[in-house]
Design a protein around this nucleic acid. Structure first.
Lengths: 332, 332
DNA sequence: ATTAAGATTGCAACCGGTTGCAAAATCTGT
DNA sequence: ACAGATTTTGCAACCGGTTGCAATCTTAAT
């Protein structure tokens, strides 16, 4: 079927080692031998079998990219950046889609069978224990978009969700709103818990401001819309912090359908700054998450840990910033 | 580092072959031996090395998933369905992001080095020659979302873009519009060419209807918006067929900003039926592309071709349907 | 020309599995 | 209990590479 090293060796009239060495960075081969081998290789259309070599070198250059966020538009950007970033370093992403029904233990086993050099878990909704399962079997792992912990067992790269919650609260306070609310994502998600915490925390210094909290069933348009419809049956707050952009956009659609104006009647601030937030017919004021930096940093960490497996787990949090658009009234 | 077959063999007091056989479907092992081996395996935490076994079996269960559509929201659904579908069959997607700067030949070489069992090229903008490059080196390949050809060199699965163009034209004609237009994607894309062809084709039977065509720079919000802004400087058509949903949404934003009403002043029909089209604050009338069927069929084809490499290339086109929403006035 | 140092080469063993084959063990029927 | 059929088992070679080591070849210096 495909051309092997041995065939090239025969054709070039050299040993198999010589062929192997011409294709190995920094190995000792004379110019003459190299020329012969390269000639034979192109004539035969040879290209070395990466998997076979991984057997002896112990490196596959395969990186498991595990996620359960295949419905969040932000993750299209995330996949784009991860695949590009990994490719630039000569690494190959082996994608694992962790849907609700798949057994996490299964994905650990599978990635072990394929001897991935490292794993990147890209999810804000998976528990820390998931990423730790990889570390437990000796695979370097980074949890991207994960939760900060003071004594991490694995590398975590992401944003400070508590600080984001505070930042959102600050934006609403600065605008003089007296009844504010957090419309969170699913109750169990660590990201939502932390954002709620920071939000309440900042508002605890303002007893004159009424705060309420509710949770959507998921980080999704429909869930955000449904929860907002429910909220509109009562007395809605003056301004909301939405747990995520897509959820916020869903909520906004409900507000518009109710005939209310944004930001005049109800203000809204989202989180993520995904591509659609910028669309002029959405125009969502939101908190930008520095996705590119998070991803570059995650790749750095996983590569670094592959090089030095005993490297101490570290947490890297990136600062977020408010992107002013049209769903929050201007600062006074 | 990791536990090998040999260690399990020693611990279980059997030969290496015996261990190999207990982990191979349908191999001959006695219940007694199997029990001993399985016991030793769990005690040691053994899991077989898929890459090593691929060396002899010639199957890696790796499938290259190549795409250059990392900015099209539809492709989040595409990646979700592909990864899930492949996983269900015990296959692993090796993702390749073909951005503008990467050399296509490079990705062929790379996937060959990793001995992928097959390749799925998921793109409506790549030329047929790209997928053919895989077939040329003997790798089973399917071009998903590719263009129909009467004598295909590789499997093609997708929609009949010409028929879609006709369908869009039909929808506009049925509504009695007398000045219609196609706002296409990038001029070079085969999908846009075909959609334009079908559109013009259907309208050629209606000499009383004025038709015009223009092209956006890309299948993107910004490109659609920019082109629509340009069109609004002149006399716009009464109704548009947008080359794609995200482009259409961009165009709609320009129409709204110009103070025109949709569908009263300008009607719009998109193509794809991506998640956002359904959002109530977008509510785009569009032509639905049966993504799930296309993907299931693509996986079937690649699996089938792996089993029978001499299988004749075939083209599978799936019918599209109009999804009525709010951007086209009701039928009279 | 001689020699020591350095570069290049091939041998052979190994990476972690699979598999054809023949020997050994087990089962069947009588 | 025995012959014949069937199943199970281990040996050894192989998949496509890499690499330590010793032998050979170059090169530079004397």
């Amino acid at each position: 079927m495909s051309v092997t090293l041995k065939e090239v060796a025969v054709r070039a009239g050299v040993s198999r080692s010589a062929v192997s060495r011409t294709f190995t960075e920094g190995a000792s081969v004379s110019a003459k031998t190299r020329a012969k081998v390269e000639k034979a290789a192109v004539e035969l259309g040879y290209s070395p079998n990466a998997l076979a070599s991984s057997l002896t070198t112990g490196r596959t250059k395969l990186i498991g990219l595990v996620s359960n966020n295949f419905h969040n538009p932000l993750f299209l950007e995330v996949f784009d950046l991860f695949t590009r970033g990994l490719q630039e370093r000569g690494l190959r992403p082996l994608l694992v889609n962790l849907s609700a029904e798949t057994d996490p233990a299964n994905s650990v086993r599978m990635l072990r069978q394929y001897s991935v050099d490292g794993v990147i878990v890209a999810s804000s909704t998976l528990p820390p224990s998931f990423a730790e399962a990889f570390r437990d079997v000796g695979i370097p792992v980074v949890h991207s978009f994960g939760r900060y912990t003071s004594s991490p067992h694995v590398h975590v790269v992401g944003i400070d969700n508590i600080a984001c919650g505070r930042m959102a609260a600050g934006a609403l306070i600065a605008r003089g709103h007296k009844r504010v609310a957090f419309l969170g994502g699913p109750k169990g998600a660590t990201s939502t818990e932390d954002r709620a915490k920071g939000f309440l925390d900042a508002l605890s210094a303002h007893p004159d401001i009424a705060v309420s909290i509710s949770y959507a069933a998921a980080y999704s348009f429909d869930a955000g819309r449904a929860e907002m419809i429910r909220l509109l049956e009562g007395t809605p707050a003056e301004a909301y912090f939405g747990g995520d952009d897509v959820l916020s956009i869903g909520a906004l659609s409900a507000i518009q359908d109710a005939g209310l104006r944004v930001p005049e009647d109800i203000g809204f601030i989202g989180l993520n700054d995904m591509a659609m937030a910028r669309w002029q017919n959405i125009n969502l004021t939101t908190i930008r998450q520095p996705v590119a930096e998070i991803i570059a940093s995650s790749i750095d960490l996983v590569v670094g840990t592959i090089a030095d497996p005993d490297r101490h787990p570290e947490t890297r949090l990136f600062p977020c910033s408010i992107v002013e658009r049209g769903t929050l009234r201007p600062l006074p």
